[in-house]
Simulated scan of single mutants.
Amino acid sequence: MALESPPPQRARRGTKALDSLILLLLMLGLWQAVGSWTQGVAVSPPLQTFLYLADLMTQSGFWGHVAATMAAFLMAFAISAVLGLGLGLVFGLRRFAGDVAEPVLAGFYTIPKVTLYPVVLLIFGLGTSAKVAFGVMHGLVPITLLTLGAVRNLPATLLRTARVLRLPPGKTMAWILVPACLPDIISGLRLSFSLSLLGVLIGEMFSSQRGLGFLLVSGMAQHNIPLSTAVVLLIVIIAIGANMAMLRLSRRFTHRKA
């Protein structure tokens, strides 16, 4: 009796899992090689870093820094997502407004945001508000531009149908534009997530006494390499986990749309 071949989908999942494992092992090997070559001066080795991070997680003060970063990040990401989605839908529907706003937003996106940090401090002062503002500055533009482009690339029949049905703008966005543009919107949210987190961390590195960015700078200033490496490792784990979840969600909606 001939053996049945595994389903193609199961075979693809097995291949992806194997590729991910190989990539992880290569990254750990490279990390170990760099840590051994520099003798822990620039980067602490993987085992030492994981042990140091596990010890940090047992300290209550460390979770206060994590909570400060997450609170500022969630506020920045929520503002970027809601405001960027709204602006993208409006600019996509209003052709002239979109033609004017698109090059302005693209030009702002190319500016190194660090150069604008003194202005942010003057307007918002020190504290959480400055970190949130800096996160929004990083995360707002990608979701706006991707949503704007998605609306412009929609089939014209969808908007014509909305006009024939005399749908108000709010219902047109909620019932037609958002479902049709959902894969692109989720892709924009993925970018906005990463860049908002980056903006908040940079804000903490410049002018904050709490947060993961502050811990990172403190470790660098004190030449505490295990602390800096452990904080970077935690940030990478959070970013990769969230990105994988949103990527899976994006693929699911893409397949459903297809």
Rank of each mutant, 00 (worst) to 15 (best):
A2H: 11
P7H: 08
P8C: 03
D19W: 09
D19S: 11
S20T: 12
I22M: 09
L24D: 04
L25T: 06
L28D: 01
W31M: 14
Q32T: 15
W37V: 14
Q39A: 13
V41H: 08
A42L: 12
A42G: 02
P46E: 06
Q48I: 04
F50C: 15
M57V: 10
G64F: 03
A68R: 05
A72Y: 07
L74N: 09
A78T: 15
L83P: 09
L89Q: 06
D99Q: 15
V100N: 00
V100D: 07
Y109I: 02
T110F: 08
P118Y: 11
V120G: 05
L122D: 00
G125V: 08
L126E: 05
A130T: 05
F134M: 15
F134G: 05
H138G: 09
L140F: 10
L140R: 04
V141P: 02
T147I: 09
V151R: 03
R152D: 08
N153H: 13
L165D: 08
L165M: 15
L165F: 07
L167W: 06
G170A: 10
T172K: 13
L182K: 13
P183Q: 04
D184T: 05
R190V: 04
S192L: 03
S194V: 09
G203I: 07
M205Y: 05
M205P: 00
S207L: 11
L212C: 00
G213K: 01
G213I: 01
V217F: 04
G219D: 09
M220S: 08
Q222W: 10
H223R: 11
N224L: 10
I225R: 04
P226G: 07
T229S: 05
T229D: 03
A230Y: 01
L233P: 02
L233I: 05
L233A: 11
I235T: 00
G241E: 03
G241I: 01
A242N: 10
M246E: 01
R252F: 10
F253D: 13
F253S: 14
R256F: 07
A258R: 14
